[in-house]
Design a protein around this nucleic acid. Structure first.
Lengths: 218, 218
DNA sequence: ACCCTTATCTTTACACTGTAAAGTTTAATG
DNA sequence: CATTAAACTTTACAGTGTAAAGATAAGGGT
């Protein structure tokens, strides 16, 4: 649904957002990557609910049927994009982990804050990654990059727990849920009184994450 | 997007799902309620991403343009449905709270399990309530029923904290995030090793919620 | 009782959408 | 150099949401 006449919200229909050689030949040359890039833009600007495959094709200056030869259908394109999303998420988390000091808890909290930052800066991508039925979750690339991000979390939690008390997965799940919930609720604008500046929000969340995780993962 | 040709998933197009007097007159009589009921069914069966306003009209045995006179557009209909969702969520939580014993923590945990149960039994509704841009969040009915559900949580958390230590809203937010995150990740099928029977899952989640909330809200 | 206003519902039309199929161009391969 | 295969376009179709105008019926005032 929702891909049609939507006069209420501005519809950006500029062509050729993703650059293409001006002396454009019949064959694009690097259409696959161009489509993924255009799709990411389309996702960011129109959101998943207004995502349009034809719009993506327009942005890449190709016919509306061109994407099918590279991705089959819209699900194929979004699946590829989702896989990239998980790779990026992991990278952002790892960057935050590196900047934190060596205390395992600090690293876990930093990683969580990275997760939240990613979710906020890529709200629609985050939505695609976790709350959409469009991507093919059985796709090899996708499930692998998603698993990699999860593995990183397991390691972090294990280090905090010191490996002695084995609560199975529920501790890992709860830590994830806490961070994921913050991300989702922030994106849904449900946490208004959390400080208006990014710095204030981060500080407040770092505090509460630390308190919750430290206490629960003893 | 996504409202069109979707041959991969079975498309249920049966007519008149919501009963209508057989000697059907030109005027329906109770179309507004019939449309809301049909919309809930459509949401449950096709999901938000495949939701079709025309499908809802078909299910109510009226023309595809009939809904506009009661809800304006699809956003209006989904906004009304979302408001109902929040009312139901609160009711489910309160039912769980009543069944729990008088310990404030037990009540908070029970309420959280109610939240999660609602999210699982009404996955698409939950998605609509928290992760969709379609509902008009400024709508009076909607924002009020959403606020009521939130107020209930604030009271529960305050009782656990005993009101002495005031951590502002961050404790409330974190408690919510924990429960909300579990709901979202469960719906996204991201927590496979959490026990396969509902009973086992509930027990495991009750345990971990208790541990996390007790420790953090001291 | 009658008329008239108004709300409710239908019909028609339009600009979109995703995808299938067939045709066109170009690259690659033997 | 000829043939095959890949990349891309054109055309067509069934579906979508919504706007506008026409049809029906209910309600209210006189």
């Amino acid at each position: 649904m929702f891909g049609q006449n939507l006069p209420m919200k501005k519809k950006i229909t500029r062509r050729s957002v993703v650059p293409r050689s001006n002396d454009k030949t019949y064959h694009h040359g690097d259409l696959r990557n161009a489509l993924v890039a255009a799709a990411e833009l389309e996702l960011k600007e129109n959101g998943l609910e207004r995502f349009s495959l034809r719009g993506v094709a327009r942005a890449a200056s190709v016919s509306h049927a061109a994407p099918s030869h590279h991705f089959g259908d819209v699900q194929g394109l979004l699946t590829a994009l989702t896989a990239i999303g998980f790779e990026r998420l992991l990278k952002v988390q790892q960057k935050h982990q590196k900047k934190a000091n060596d205390d395992p808890l600090e690293k876990l909290v930093a990683s969580g804050l990275g997760y939240i930052e990613f979710a906020q800066k890529n709200a629609e991508m985050f939505h695609l990654m976790f709350a959409s039925t469009m991507p093919d979750r059985d796709n090899a690339d996708l499930s692998q990059s998603a698993a990699a991000a999860f593995e990183n979390l397991v390691v972090l939690v294990d280090k905090v727990r010191g490996r002695e008390t084995d609560q199975g997965m529920s501790d890992v799940y709860a830590s994830w849920a806490l961070v994921h919930g913050f991300s989702a609720l922030l994106n849904a604008n449900k946490l208004p009184s959390l400080g208006n500046s990014k710095k204030a929000r981060d500080a407040e969340m770092r505090g509460v994450l630390k308190r919750f995780l430290a206490a629960a993962l003893n």
